[in-house]
């Protein structure tokens, strides 16, 4: 008997994305550009994060027409975002057959306390995290993939670096601890004990962890790989740049060959203007998507 929706096929799907770049797209044309550039998946959205920031108001799941259009345009996997805690948006996306759901802080949370119980969905979920406590809680709820949050739509890598470094430092700490210290650590991190135990045994997270939120250049993507990300999400960076196709290809190559600095130098030549970017100091707490719902 065939079994669908098992942890192995849900987590395994993310394993197949490793070393790759997942790109935000808002229509079929952008999705084609992303696929041709070598993206491993696309995230179908109504607006990229920097436009969500500019537009203000409540950001919701994309119009299903856009998601469908993107699904019909490409053969690579298509992801889509639902609001944190919005069980019905998630069920709608699952019913449409999207390949991965991002329960995302980029959209306005629908529930300010609870995330979706993702365990009984057939479709796999990716969730954001800023530290190991968040990462472990999301795994406990059934996330099959993680991404460090960074600060979406800013084109500023600083938060992405901070979150990935912190998660990895906290993993190293867990691995180095003795098992009888884990329960107290679980209490302090607000993390499920079983997930920490699994991390200790494996020496790593039990799911793939990409970096997201602020990747704007090929060198940014390579930096995240260097710091131990399994791959990168690029949101506004590509289609807000002067030459999206060239930019997308350069980011894909820099992610694969992240230790080949001569190549990254070549790739970075004459790319044109990257997205403008925001300094964190100019953002108020209310502007920080990464602080939404832990």
């Amino acid at each position: 008997m065939a079994q669908t929706g098992t942890d192995r096929v849900k987590r395994g799907m993310a394993e197949m994305q490793k070393g790759g770049v997942i790109m935000d797209v808002v229509n079929a044309e952008q999705a084609k550009i992303a696929e041709d550039a070598g993206a491993v998946a696309v995230m179908a959205l109504e607006r990229v994060p920097s436009d969500i920031r500019a537009a203000g108001g409540v950001a919701r799941m994309a119009d299903p027409t856009i998601v469908e259009e993107v699904m019909n345009a490409v053969s690579i996997p298509v992801m889509a975002k639902c609001r944190i805690g919005h069980i019905v948006e998630a069920r709608v996306l699952e019913a449409m057959g999207v390949d991965y759901i991002d329960e995302s802080e980029v959209l306005t949370p629908a529930d300010d306390r609870f995330h979706i119980d993702k365990r009984n969905f057939t479709v796999p979920f990716v969730c954001g995290c800023r530290n190991l406590g968040e990462a472990a809680r999301r795994i406990g709820e059934g996330a099959s993939m993680l991404r460090t949050k960074g600060e979406p739509g800013t084109g500023n890598i600083v938060e992405a670096v901070k979150h990935l470094r912190l998660v990895n430092a906290q993993i190293r700490k867990i691995v180095g601890m003795s098992e009888d210290e884990l329960m107290t650590e679980a209490k302090e991190l607000g993390a499920p004990f079983d997930v920490l135990l699994e991390i200790k045994k494996l020496g790593r997270l039990p799911v793939v962890n990409f970096a997201a939120g602020g990747v704007a250049t090929p060198a940014d993507a390579a930096l995240m790989m260097h710091l131990g990300a399994d791959g990168v999400f690029v949101g506004s960076g590509i289609f807000k740049s002067a030459n999206p196709s060239k930019y997308a290809k350069a980011i894909v190559e820099a992610t694969t060959h992240y230790e080949d600095y001569e190549l990254i130098a070549e790739l970075s030549k004459g790319l044109g203007e990257p997205m403008k970017g925001l300094d964190m100091a100019t953002l108020t707490e209310a502007d920080r998507m990464s602080l939404r719902s832990e």
């Binding site: 008997m1 065939a2 669908t4 096929v9 197949m16 390949d99």
Partner: peptide
């Protein structure tokens, strides 16, 4: 099919195994 149709199934593989857990992902 797409990811929601990804599955695990028991396979017989000639010369390798009578029972093998096949993990099919897209």
């Amino acid at each position: 099919g797409r990811q929601v149709a990804s599955f695990e199934a028991d396979l017989k593989i000639e010369g390798i195994a009578d029972h093998f857990n096949g993990v099919f992902i897209r």
